[in-house]
């Protein structure tokens, strides 16, 4: 990261995504983000949309699928900041977000066996 980062300046003083509590839960490191193909190109880039430079960088980067963590790494921004900004863009309908394949539960016993099978098959093929 270059120089001191001032997260609250970039996000306009917010430390939580603007959407709602559910969206905050949904935005995990492994949530996948891409520009909404249905959105009009350039629609969100004009001044009136109120997007700052970092919002625009996310839109430029996410022309295809990347995780929230990858967006943060490529742009050199802290994860918390990227969650807030992606939340803004999601609110505007500028990006679409695919939630994690595992709901944000912490009990291992709730992991679906079919999903674990899919992971296993994939890993064995790649080994």
């Amino acid at each position: 990261m270059n120089g001191p980062v001032r997260p609250y300046v970039i996000t306009g003083g917010r430390s939580r995504p603007s959407r709602n509590v559910q969206a905050l839960e949904d935005l995990a490191l492994e949530s996948l983000v891409s520009v909404d193909p249905a959105a009009e190109p350039g629609e969100f880039l004009d001044e009136q949309a109120g997007l700052n430079r970092e919002h625009r960088r996310i839109l430029a980067l996410c022309r295809q699928l990347l995780s929230v963590a990858e967006v943060a790494a490529h742009l050199g921004l802290p994860l918390g900041v990227v969650k807030v900004l992606v939340g803004d863009l999601w609110d505007l309908g500028a990006v679409q977000v695919l939630p994690p394949a595992v709901p944000p539960v912490r009990q291992a016993e709730r992991l679906p066996a079919t999903l674990l099978e899919e992971v296993l098959v994939g890993l064995r093929q790649l080994r």
Binding site: L61, L65, L66, E70, H74, V102
Partner: peptide, 14 residues
């Protein structure tokens, strides 16, 4: 250039 995921990906685990 970022290594994008295939557009067919529906979700991720960690």
């Amino acid at each position: 250039e970022p290594d994008y995921l295939p557009s067919t990906v529906q979700g991720a685990v960690k």
